[in-house]
Simulated scan of single mutants.
Amino acid sequence: MRGFARHWPLVQAAAQSEIAAARFLQQHSKDLPQVLLKLPAKVKGRLFYNETVTGMNFGGSQMRMNAAIEQMLQNDAAGDRYCVQCVPVQQNFDTLQLDNPLLPADTKAFIWLGNNVTVPAHFDEASNIAVVVAGKRRFTLFPPEQVANLYIGPLDLTPAGQPVSMVNMLQPDLVAHPNYPQAYAAALSVELEPGDAIYIPTPWWHHVQSLSHFNVLVNYWWSDTYVGAALPFPMLLHALLSFKHMSEGQQHAWQQLLKHYLFAENGDPAAHLPAQAKGILGDMKPQLAQGIHQWLANQLK
């Protein structure tokens, strides 16, 4: 969506210069403590694992927002790069004017600031509108069907909560990841400038590369599903715990149940039931969702 936010005062400041955008943010900041991530020069700005995939290749420290922005503006002598991620706008920059006519007014906005940093391909559990407000960013999207060709890393040790592709998409190793060209062939890529926005549907994989010395992004997550629904990714982990070590016959049997109840491959699985008897298979009302959450909590104790 080219020019989606060109009228935002922050975008207009960025049109002058990256420094002007940084100063604008500092003026509107509540200057609260943040986690400033530091990426050593040798990792070339790629937020990723360490060499043994037992931890991360970056570290973090507490710093107030305005000082963190100042750190990003400096040309680090060692070549290290810095970023602050996923900061709630309302709590930290409540005077910024960031209207988004595509979403309800109460949809929460988050802001991401940093040097030229690369985030490996990952997915979000909600739909996403991302708005570039300073610097330039390149987004590369992969459809969910390409998951096997993206060589996804550990599910329970992740850089930022979601699993990421192990492929270095700027320098792919086709010996370690021979099927990646199939994902590349299916990819969509676009470069956005200040004021441009992109819609990223869930759960599409997306690789994000910041191309300028100082970059700012604002994003909005939202879901069209029932607001009280549990997030899908924890359910995937629980399903692995439940199904992965079953015998082949048991897995096949449960696969049929999942196809029937979850994906409705045979039509509405509750079509034969009276409306008042459908329970969880019917309309998800707040009271029912609360009861299910409580039942799950008791089962997992």
Rank of each mutant, 00 (worst) to 15 (best):
W112H: 02
W112M: 04
L113I: 10
L113H: 03
L113S: 09
N115W: 08
V117T: 11
V119K: 08
P120C: 02
A121F: 08
D124K: 12
S127E: 14
N128L: 09
N128P: 07
A130S: 12
A130F: 01
A130D: 09
V131L: 12
V131D: 07
R137C: 03
R138E: 15
T140I: 14
T140L: 07
L141C: 14
L141K: 08
L141T: 11
P143S: 12
P143Y: 04
P144T: 14
P144I: 08
Q146V: 05
V147A: 15
L150S: 12
Y151S: 12
P154C: 01
D156Y: 06
D156M: 12
D156A: 08
L157N: 08
T158G: 03
A160T: 02
A160Y: 10
A160D: 10
G161R: 03
Q162W: 01
V164H: 06
V167C: 10
V167P: 12
N168A: 07
N168R: 05
M169G: 05
P172Q: 05
D173T: 06
L174N: 14
V175Y: 00
V175L: 05
A176W: 00
A176T: 10
P178W: 04
P178L: 12
Y180H: 11
Y180R: 05
Y180G: 14
Y180I: 03
Q182N: 14
A183S: 14
Y184T: 04
